[in-house]
Design a protein around this nucleic acid. Structure first.
Lengths: 339, 339
DNA sequence: TTGTAAGCGTTATCAG
DNA sequence: CTGATAACGCTTACAA
């Protein structure tokens, strides 16, 4: 069990000073060709790798990015991580993941742990509880220290930072429009409670599309789900008890649940009732019938978030205190659940 | 943008020495009640948090665990991360995630990066390519340095480390048995190529169960999928072209694909043909019909892996060079795809 | 009770 | 061309 090789050890083994070793390995012109290659050969043969912790301390940067998400066992967030990880790696960064479990307290604790020098910046999506309480002191503390944050999906305008979102209003609007163009007139929306920003915005887009076409959007056409784990009965009652010919759902889970409930009651999809869902994940592709979805481009959002963050980390600080909001285009992926 | 607070800064602000501050904050008996509370109050008011990088360097331990997995957008691996992250956090550790994308080279690079002091130990599942080439030098290098590895799911016996697996042979055996007890006589297996350890072992369990009951397992009863991204046609041909009344699939994706192909050809599930799949994920719960599965307990495996690793990290080194293999019990979750 | 100094592994500055 | 020294932030003998 060979001890980890350090500059000191190499210096001792080769009877030179530590700084000579350091310089030789970094190809300094100050070191003679001879010693340089002697040292480099030795280092290579022993597979020397500089200690990244020491470098972090010295350089005051860790080359690590903290990702804070509400959940990891969730297709959308997993794709975001995937995209962020890829771009981070391409730029010599690594990602540290923490999960808030939709809890404000866990979000605070996780961010405090990471902010103590472990990382250079954050990529995050707010927990439900944080959005509900709207307590953002932990985020302010981080930005006040000069540590940049890039938010995605569930964001807030009350923190100075870059944001990566999809245009939820427009996407919901165009999906609703799509259903109406297919001749559907009685539309139902299955969404989340309003404090979840994406749910609220999608609801807004849905309603806008309806009123623009002169439909009134009665309250009973919108179902707001508080707890996704126990939504089955609610959704069944909603879709079966109303005379819809089209459904828009803000995520796959709500959509599949609705689809199954409808089929159980003998309704045919898409003939009797069409379904469009947000989030293009596994369920949509493999449900029966397959679901028409609005792709959320998680991979892309994650990649952009990482790129933005790294860009900010690497440019001379102090300049450009202007933050940007990137809106990632969504696209409708038509499958069997719409005619 | 307040600069990050350090001991040095506190010492200067309060006109004491750095070590006095350090000791006071750690409640050393050496420091007088008065200075101690003065320092602690000040630190608290300014929200001082020790720099974790400096601590890592000093203590030669990072309190970080590296997780190396083949894929992250994959329900099973996501659950493993979730379990590992939870247990790690409970013990004051954080997790750094890297993804090999099933590539040997990426696995090597990722592990080398992390092994340079960034983490205290690894939790990992081998990439397909690594299993295929069976080149394990990067793993040996890590263990030779005295850095522990805990492997899960896709493991090898050629590295001295703890392992967390399910009993794939037994699970496949009992699932096959289950189908036979339901009166099914013509069974098909959809599995992966043999170098993926779990695929090989599950195939073995399947065959064992058949021969024990006196069936011969002809080759055409086993379909080995090389590339999961393009398996649709292969699976369709296999399940439709043979006269099966039962199918065992080594993952959900193969199972759902088979299910849809069969339904397309007018076969009824489970009446004409029953299906059992490994991995209890989203697809199984929401497919039509819902799938009977063998739960793989990813969350539990991740938790055990983290616990084992942390246990090894925190016990006096040198002792106990004996490694353990934990076999996590699986359970059959019966749903609509079996009678 | 407080402070000084060495050390963790690096790099950078400056002296020899 | 090579080496000693300080610094990054923290802990801990040891000195005062």
């Amino acid at each position: 069990m060979a001890q980890k090789l350090t500059l000191k050890q190499i210096a001792k083994d080769l009877n030179v000073s530590i700084s000579t070793v350091s310089k030789a390995l970094r190809d300094s012109y100050e070191i003679s060709e001879e010693t340089r290659s002697k040292i480099k050969d030795y280092a290579k043969s022993k597979n020397y790798k500089p200690n990244s912790i020491a470098l972090s301390l010295k350089n005051q940067k860790t080359k690590k990015i903290g990702i804070v998400i509400p959940e990891i066992v969730h297709h959308f967030f997993a794709t975001v991580i995937s995209g962020a990880e890829r771009v981070a790696n391409e730029n010599g960064y690594q990602v540290i993941i923490t999960v808030s479990d939709e809890s404000f307290d866990k979000e605070v604790v996780n961010m405090e742990m990471l902010a103590n020098g472990s990382i250079d910046g954050f990529i995050m999506s707010l927990s439900k509880e944080t959005m509900d309480k709207h307590d953002l002191h932990h985020l302010r503390e981080v930005t006040n220290q000069g540590m940049p944050i890039v938010m995605f999906d569930r964001v807030t305008n009350d923190i100075a930072c870059d944001k990566i979102i999809i245009d939820d209003v427009a996407a919901a609007h165009s999906a609703t429009d799509f259903l109406m163009r297919k001749g559907r007139k009685n539309l139902g929306l299955i969404t989340t409670v309003d404090y979840v920003s994406v749910g609220r915005l999608r609801t807004q887009g849905f309603k806008q599309a309806l009123t623009e076409r002169g439909y009134e959007c009665e309250n009973h056409q919108v179902l707001k789900i508080e707890n996704a784990d126990a939504c089955e009965n609610e959704i069944e009652k909603f879709v079966v008890g109303n005379n819809f010919d089209g459904i828009l759902a803000v995520n796959e889970l709500f959509a599949v649940t609705a689809s199954k409930a409808l089929q159980k009651h003998g309704r045919s999809i898409p003939d009797d009732i069409a379904i469009v869902a947000f989030t293009d994940g596994m369920l949509s592709k493999y449900a029966s019938p397959t679901l028409t979805t609005i792709g959320q481009k998680g991979e892309e959002m994650g990649g952009i978030a990482a790129a933005k963050l790294i860009e900010r980390l690497e440019k001379k600080e102090s300049d450009s205190e202007s933050y940007e909001t990137v809106i990632v285009k969504t696209s409708l992926i038509e499958r069997e659940s719409t005619p």
